[in-house]
Design a binder for these strands. Sequence first.
DNA 1: ACTTTATGTAAGCATAGACTTACGTTTTAA
DNA 2: TTAAAACGTAAGTCTATGCTTACATAAAGT
Lengths: 106, 106
Amino acid sequence: MTHEKALSALADPTRRTVFERLRSGPKSAGHLAQGLAVSRPAVSQHLKALREAGLVADEKRGRSRIYRIEHGGLEALRSYLDSFWGDVLDAYKEALEHDERDQNSD
Amino acid sequence: MTHEKALSALADPTRRTVFERLRSGPKSAGHLAQGLAVSRPAVSQHLKALREAGLVADEKRGRSRIYRIEHGGLEALRSYLDSFWGDVLDAYKEALEHDERDQNSD
DNA sequence: ACTTTATGTAAGCATAGACTTACGTTTTAA
DNA sequence: TTAAAACGTAAGTCTATGCTTACATAAAGT
C-alpha cells in the first residue's frame, strides 16, 4: 500500500518535473537538476522522496548516481485508481434506483 | 489537463478519506463529516478542493448537498500514469543497449 | 414569523514541507 | 596526495495549506 507516498510525491510540481525528466531514459542526479529553478540539493531531496515512494530506483555508477523510473510506485497508484471504477458504478446504480439521499453508514 | 489538481487533492490523508467514503455511494456533506477527526467546515473545504479537481460532483437536494464521485478527475489521473508505461520502457531499453550513463538533453 | 437544520465562506493560526547555504563523503583526475 | 567533481545530509528559514471558530445563507419545519 504505497499509494499514499506515491500521491504526495507526485503532488509537488518540481518533484513531478524531476520525475517526468526520467521519461526519456535514466539520468544522473546532476543532469536532472540542470536547468531547473531550484538548487541541486533540493533535487536530491526530491529524489529521496521519489525513491521512498517506489517511483524511482537508483544505481551508483562511478562517482555519479543514475536514477530511473521504478514501476512499483506507478502500479500501486494505478491499482488504487482502478479500485474505484467497479465499486463506484455499482454503488451508484443502486443509489439511483432507490432514488435516495444518503443512506449508507460508512 | 487537471491531473495536477487531482494529485494534490488526493495527496492529503483526510481529503482522501472523504473521497473514499464516496465509494459506497453518494452522500451528503454532513454525513461525510460524521466520525471524522476534523470539523465539518474542514470537510466542506476538502470537498471544494475535490470538486475543483474534477474528482467529485455535487447536487443540491433539499437543504442538503449530495456529493458523488466524478470520473473525470480519475480518468485524467489514470491517463497521466499510463503515459509513462510505453515511453519509459522504450527509452530504457535503448539506454540499456547503448550501456550508457546519462545522455539525453531533456 | 421565528427557529432549526444543513451547508458554505472568512479570518486567523499553526504546522508540514519545500528551499537555501554550508558541510561531509566518495570517487576520479593531476 | 592534493584537488576537483558529483552527490547526499544537516540546520534553519519561509511559505503553502489544513484546521478552527465565527459568521452568512438558504431551505424546511412549527
